[in-house]
Each structure stands twice: as C-alpha cells, then as structure tokens.
Design a binder for these strands. Sequence first.
DNA 1: AGCGAAATACCACTTTGGAGGTACCTCCAG
DNA 2: CTGGAGGTACCTCCAAAGTGGTATTTCGCT
Lengths: 223, 223
Amino acid sequence: MSEETTAASEAGPASVLLIDDHPLLRKGVKQLIDLEDDLEVIAEASNAETGVAKAVETDPDLILLDLNMPEINGIETLKMLREADVGSRIVVFTVSDNEEDVVAALRAGADGYLLKDMEPEELLASLNQAALGKMVISEKLTALLAQALQAGRTTKSADISSLTPRERQIIKLIAAGLPNKLIARKLSITEGTVKVHVKHLLKKLNLRSRVEVAVWAVNEGLS
Amino acid sequence: MSEETTAASEAGPASVLLIDDHPLLRKGVKQLIDLEDDLEVIAEASNAETGVAKAVETDPDLILLDLNMPEINGIETLKMLREADVGSRIVVFTVSDNEEDVVAALRAGADGYLLKDMEPEELLASLNQAALGKMVISEKLTALLAQALQAGRTTKSADISSLTPRERQIIKLIAAGLPNKLIARKLSITEGTVKVHVKHLLKKLNLRSRVEVAVWAVNEGLS
DNA sequence: AGCGAAATACCACTTTGGAGGTACCTCCAG
DNA sequence: CTGGAGGTACCTCCAAAGTGGTATTTCGCT
C-alpha cells in the first residue's frame, strides 16, 4: 500500500471544498482556484452542517474553512470535521489574526492558517503546498506563533500560582505518571474526586489531557 | 463524613489477611501479630485465588503478601487485588531483595515491602505503621530504591536506542501531548496502528501508560 | 450571619487508551 | 529461500479518562 490508503489524492487535480458563509468571497476564491490546473473546487458550503456533510460526501483533498461563521464557528466546524473522520487537509482561511484563533485552529487539527488579505498568487501557491501536505501559515503569523509556542503558552495559559494546594498536589502525581485510581488511593479520596480536580486542572491550565498536564508539569520543574 | 469512607479501619484492632504459600511462616506471623493488640489476623490464604477471594470477602485493613508463590506470583496477585478494587493496605513480605521485584511491587500498588529476615519487633512496628497508612520499606532496600528512582530507572528500563524509527517518531508526538487519533492523522496511518506502536513502546520501555511515556520522553530530552 | 471558594462525593455518559490476537506485506540476513 | 523484524490494519473487550451535572461540608472573609 502506501498510496490510496491515506490521502485521497493521486490522479487529476486536487479537489477543494470551500466552507465560507460569504458567497462573494467563495466565488472569488473559486475563480482564482479554477485558474490553477492543479486545483479544482468540487463543492461549496455556507455553514458548518452542510460543510461537514459535503466533506464526508466528497472527501476532498483540501478544505478551505472560514472561521467567522454564524451559529457554529470555524473552530467548532473544524472539530466536527475531524470527528467525522474527514481526512482532508484543512486550511483555515480567515481575517482573524488573533492569537487565540490561530492557536485554537492549529490545536483543533488545522493543517494551515491563511489570512484573507493575502495576495492571490500567494494564496494559490499556499493552497498548492497545502494540497501536497505541507503546513501553510501566513507569514504575518509566524512571529505570533513563535511567541505563543515559546513560552509553552497557548492562549493565556495560567500558571501554577492559580492552582489550589490540592491541585498542585495532584498535578505532581499526574506528572509522576499515576493513574487517577492510585492518586485517589494515595490521597485517600475517591477516584471521582480526583477526576474533578483533574478537570479543574485542565480548565485552568488550558490543556487537553493529563498527558499535556504531565508534560507541562515536568517542563515547569514540578518534579 | 470524613471517616468511614476511605480506609476500613476505626473501632477495634486492624484486620490482617495473610497470603503466603508457606503454612509454617503464616503460623509464625500470625502468632506474632496476635501478640499485638492493635492487629488481628482475620484470614489466611495459601495462593492467589483464595487470597483475592478472602480479601474481597473480608476487606481487611492490611494484607501481608508473599511474593514467591507457585502458579501466580505475588506481583500478579497484587494486581489482581487492585483489580478487584481491594482498598486494603497491601504490604509485600518476601525474601527477595531483588530490585526488579521491589520496583514491580511498588509499581503495582504495594503500600510496603518488608523482608522476611526482619526482626520480629521491627516487623510488628512496621505493620502497625502500615495499618495506619504509612508506607513501610525495609531499611535494607532504601539505598536500592533511591538508586532505582534516581535514574528514573525502574527495572532495567531500555533506552531510546532500542526503539524503531517509527516508535521514536511516535514517542515524540506522545510527548507533545497528542492523542492517538491526531498522531494517526499526522503520520497518515490508522489509529489502530498507532495503538500498536504505543503498545510496543510501553512494553519496550517498561512503562505503564502514555503519561509515563510522555514524562520519560521529556526528561530524556526528546522534545 | 451570610457568602464564596475549595474539597469532597456521586451519577450517568462518551471517548480514549490499552491488551490480546490474527493477518498481510516488505525487506533483509542467514 | 526461509525466517524474523518492522510496519500496517482490523478485531474484540475492558479499563481509564473526561464531561456535565448536583450536592454537602468546611473554612475564611466580609
């Protein structure tokens, strides 16, 4: 194997699905893309639901996704797409150069993040790259990203001082690799309660799993 | 609440379950324990199965567990006890001062590790401590333990050189906090396959969860 | 006296993770 | 050319993790 199995490419031009609630912009992008032999818009959608449906239906190579949509925003849509096991490359295409959006999108599994104020040629070049599997990010954002990643920061990211004593105690045990059950045993509380603390920890530190908590703690020196 | 809920103590002497395939030794220990007002042997077992059964049945405060038993060894028994959600303090009582055994026992959730060549008075003192929730370890072992923990080592612990390229690739992603699904996406393989690699990783590194793998990797500098 | 944060507990539920097993393919060494 | 190692996939099954609630107690601060 090694082909056919993962991406749905090979053969002709790479198929593109546009998801954007702005018809005019879709039209413009479509025209632009159709100038390119290697890319072809095979479907469009103006909201999350139909977007996901079309994605599942057409399994495109690339999905261009707007962030600012009514009702269900782009990040949610992104998650929905991934939930639906859409394997397509997903590139966020938006006006927002807000750090939180960028980080959230990449976190949610975006394969690229492009700003709508790009030059058309740049956009095409980026989309081609994306279709080939490269992660594409607008240059304007690289500095911002570097900064965000640097401090291990992602969005605001609180620090250890915002944690309660109990939480600090538990984070160390997580970093020691203990499962909730053992943490509970060690602290003589129920596993359910440990879960509550872990939940709060994840919330406060803006992390997504105990693994991230453990890594964070280790890097933070919470040995 | 705050009492009654966690340990099953209060009231009279702490109840003790002996699990050891050596009847004579059981008898000796029982006599010794019965000299102590604060401890009482309420059951005995000569193998894993009946040991677990009695533990579930009597929910003792303390379980004294021999490691060298036929058929199912002590470590397995220990795991079975924890599986069965036996909340009792479990103290391993054995002749083995082998590092692997000690580490494995503590890993498996033992609350103590005592050597059979202890002085009777020491044993009693230790058991009392254990019944009160203290972790008890024979002094002879402390040096060994310190050494084992020091290098993050636990048992022999293989190193990164024993991993295949694919495994090395995956361990980094685990350390980045990615769940299997995202790792699969990133490597363009199925989640099932990722699980296989993770399984092998756990086996090779002798770790018990992806959290431990992540911590190990971070400490190892696999950023 | 009253309020709010922290800690605890429980419950129902969904999603991940991990174990164990089979199977197929490729590449390389013996 | 046979066999093993590595990689991939798929399967079932069960445990662990996480989410969303509600609720109680304790403690410290107005």
